[in-house]
């Protein structure tokens, strides 16, 4: 019986080599593996053998069956690939891709910013783009006819309204209903009345932030903004903080990031300064806290403002802010 099994195996392998179409393959399967096939017949007879011979022969029978089966499936694969006439050029030729559109780089970057801040526990708020001077200026400690207002060139809308110059009004309005502790960001479109060039737009996006709680410190501000910049531009980011005047914060400061292109050596992107101005920030002015009905004696907080366009342009290496609003498909399709 042992001999018989070896013979079946040898013959089976020989038969396989001769097979040239699927029909022959199917009859091969019946001949060897079928219920009445040769292997089945031998295997059935094993149980009639003396008990001590059964395991060795059983094992051999299984090995033969396995060997034939593997050989069979290999033969079948080569048979089918011959039939499909598969060629290298056919396998490597790409299909037409799905017609996907493109999200605006500002949208993509803003989503990134929102994700980072929400992961830090910030709530996202939105508001109106047309505002009153009260919410855009007065309540932010930017009095009428004060030179500090000159920093915000403004579009005025009929009826004594204006196009918001920052998203701070969103926060002011939100704080009418909220009590500390709060962590907010307000992303959105803002407007400045200034001549456009590669670095200036009348329309751009901003994301302002606000944190109010007991004992919020300048250290907290620096830490939060450093974390944010590292999250966007990578762990190598180096920042520096310098005093800057904004009427709604005291102390006020700007955060610079060391130029990533020249590592602080000075290049055209950073105007040879080695540093890039990234955002404005500061501890919320006690008057502004009071305007939000928050007791500056009990609570403190910081605020910051990110110019999304500038940060996005730096991220992608875009050198003209106007491209974002051009509707030019050659630009939009790059993202």
């Amino acid at each position: 019986m042992k001999e018989q099994l070896h013979k079946i195996k040898q013959r089976g392998l020989e038969d396989l080599e001769k097979i040239s179409n699927m029909k022959q393959m199917r009859s091969f399967e019946v001949q060897y593996f079928g219920r009445k096939g040769e292997l089945s017949q031998v295997m059935r007879r094993i149980k009639d053998l003396p008990k001590n011979e059964r395991p060795a022969l059983g094992k051999l029978a299984n090995e033969v069956k396995q060997a034939l089966n593997i050989a069979r499936s290999k033969a079948e694969k080569s048979l089918t690939s011959k039939q499909r006439e598969v060629s290298v050029i056919d396998l490597t030729w790409p299909s037409q891709p799905h017609r996907l559109g493109h999200l605006h780089p500002l949208t993509q970057f803003l989503d990134k910013v929102m994700n980072i801040f929400t992961s830090m526990g910030f709530e996202v708020l939105e508001g109106q783009e047309v505002e009153t001077p009260e919410y855009n200026f007065d309540l932010l400690n930017i009095p009428k006819n004060h030179p500090s207002r000159d920093a915000w060139d403004t579009f005025y809308v009929e009826g004594g309204m204006l196009m918001r110059t920052h998203t701070s009004p969103v926060q002011l309005r939100a704080m009418k209903k909220k009590r500390p502790p709060v962590r907010l960001i307000a992303p959105g479109r803002v407007f400045r009345h200034e001549a456009t060039d590669a670095g200036h737009e009348t329309t751009f996006y901003q994301c302002e932030g606000l944190v109010i709680d007991r004992s919020i410190t300048v250290s907290n501000l620096i830490s939060t903004l450093e974390q944010f910049l590292k999250e966007v531009y990578g762990p190598k980011v180096k920042i520096r903080v310098r005093p800057e005047y904004y009427p709604f914060v005291e102390p006020g400061m700007d955060v610079d990031m060391q130029c990533l292109i020249c590592d602080g050596q000075g290049c055209s992107v950073c105007h040879q300064r080695g540093w890039l101005e990234m955002l404005g920030s500061g501890m919320i002015h006690p008057k502004v806290l009071s305007n939000m009905n928050i007791d500056p004696e009990k609570f403190s907080g910081f605020a910051f403002g990110l110019g999304i366009d500038r940060l996005m342009m730096l991220y992608h290496g875009i050198n003209d802010v106007r491209l974002s609003y051009s509707g030019d498909l050659r630009f939009l399709e790059q993202f």
């Binding site: 526990g121 709530e123 502790p181 962590r183 944190v211 709680d213 007991r214 919020i216 410190t217 300048v218 250290s219 907290n220 620096i222 830490s223 939060t224 450093e226 974390q227 520096r240 903080v241 310098r242 005093p243 400061m253």
Partner: peptide, 15 residues
């Protein structure tokens, strides 16, 4: 300001 050690905010926050 740059001599100040950055300190993360330790405070309660709402989801």
């Amino acid at each position: 300001w740059n001599n100040l050690p950055p300190t993360p905010i330790y405070a309660s926050h709402k989801t």
